[in-house]
Amino acid sequence: MTTTLAAVDICRFGARRDARTQMHLRRQMYELIADACAITRVPWASCYREDRGDGALFIVPPDVVGDHLLDPFAHHLAAALRRYNQLAGDIAQIRLRLAVHTGRVYRDEHGVAGPALVHLFRLLDAPSFKKTADDSVGDLALIVSDRLYNDATESGGMIDPDAYTPCDVISKETRTRAWIWTPPPR
């Protein structure tokens, strides 16, 4: 089935954090994602989910329009992160990297697989994206596949194309163009 896929990663998860703090960060990450889904009417309970230790994979039902994960979802997630971080101490601060792509997903007895998933995680782990996320002043950095970005901008969706910056991604065998969005400075 063709659907929209998202992968989230907690930036610098292992840096100076003990197991208790890491467990707290994971709980908060899931709560923040669920809150952003609820606000944007993305059915979190119906999403396929896999835990990734310091992050998560979730695949929305095929009837959810892919650009909804760009705007309004990413904007609501950024706002939820900002609100959480205002009240969290230094050790509990959360910064997230979010990758979103669209494509065909295949299921078997072990979970999901396919080229779309490989592409999603190449985007998430791209050194150029990690650097952008590290240099960003915001709590969230979003990378969107060229395919989804073009679909969203051509369909006249809610996203502002000028808010995205093109990025050449080189990650393992993947060489592609993607688009990065970070929230405006506070």
Rank of each mutant, 00 (worst) to 15 (best):
T2M: 07
T2A: 14
D9I: 04
R12K: 15
R12E: 14
R16C: 14
R17Q: 14
Q22F: 05
H24A: 09
L25S: 05
R26I: 02
R27L: 09
A34S: 10
A34D: 13
A36D: 02
A38D: 13
I39A: 14
P43S: 13
D51L: 02
D51C: 10
G53V: 12
D54K: 00
I59Q: 07
P61K: 06
D63I: 15
G66M: 11
H68P: 03
D71Q: 11
D71G: 03
P72W: 01
H75N: 08
R83C: 08
N85F: 02
A88T: 00
G89M: 05
A92S: 10
L96C: 00
L98P: 04
V100W: 03
V100I: 09
E109Y: 14
H110V: 04
G111H: 15
V118E: 01
F121M: 04
R122T: 03
R122P: 00
R122V: 03
S128K: 13
K130V: 02
K131L: 15
D135H: 12
V137Q: 05
D139C: 13
L140I: 07
D160H: 08
A163N: 12
Y164D: 10
P166V: 08
D168L: 10
I170F: 06
K172Y: 11
R175M: 05
T176H: 02
I180G: 04
P183H: 06
P185K: 06
